[in-house]
Design a protein around this nucleic acid. Structure first.
Lengths: 129, 129
DNA sequence: CCTTGACCTGGAGTCAGCTCCAGCGTTTAC
DNA sequence: GTAAACGCTGGAGCTGACTCCAGGTCAAGG
């Protein structure tokens, strides 16, 4: 278990940002000690790192919230009832939409990287001559 | 030549956004008519579309400004003087830094896309059974 | 001429995502 | 038992990127 300062140095987010993400519903520290002191588990830290990756790929906090919602709610079940079916379908359409956007973004990113390389090459040649 | 409304529909940016980008120094419409009416050339529209691509790959307006600075300032020259050398070197280091960030971002993005696919597959299997 | 519609400007407002701060509660060290 | 160090909370403040608006200019149509 880690305190917020340790979690901060392990993940690279500031104390304030960790608290802010919690308020926004992205993280739930494993527990609270006396005086309400936050305590982060390894799983917590892992999740925060995964949030960092999602952020770095350009998702908004809302998108991240949608993205990480779930994961283990439906395991170990023989059958699903109607409610669960609907829930899963709505999650699937959200995920599918996100995936589309991410793939578009990747195309743009590839193009941008290629252009940056071209520019750099151009400058390099310019300097050599 | 296109007016701002045409430029807007051609590029997908709002009128206000186009004017805002101009104020931020990203675009210079080819000319102004009577009453200061903006007039965009094909080259302008092309550049705006390229800005759109840069935006979509996650660059800030400042980064975009750095990215598109230049391009034709040093063509057709036999030799470069000291000033120009320094300018090019500073541009190269900015571009190189951006390239690094972009490549990191692409790693994150690939990972995110892979995770999204995994999640979708998982849900799909869940629904089939 | 006068109205209508498209454009202009400067400035205010909005939203996301932090960041900072005052004031308060523990715990720890002297 | 008290001061320093750390954490907590609620709320204010800030930046980037728009978005909206009031008030003005100009061109064309009736």
């Amino acid at each position: 278990m880690y305190n917020i300062r340790e979690a901060s140095t392990m993940t690279g987010f500031s104390l304030d940002t960790l608290r802010y993400y919690e308020k926004m519903g992205l993280i739930q520290p494993a527990s609270r000690g006396t005086g309400g002191v936050r305590s982060y588990s390894d799983a917590n830290v892992h999740q925060i790192l995964s949030i960092k990756c999602l952020k770095q790929s350009g998702l908004s906090l809302e998108d991240i919230k949608d993205f990480i919602a779930d994961g283990q709610c439906f395991r170990n079940k023989e059958a699903l009832d109607d409610e669960e079916m609907k829930l899963i379908q709505s999650r699937m359409s959200i995920l599918a939409a996100q995936l589309d956007r991410l793939e578009e973004q990747r195309q743009a990113l590839d193009q941008t990287i290629a252009e940056a390389r071209t520019k750099l090459d151009y400058y390099e040649k310019l300097m050599q001559s």
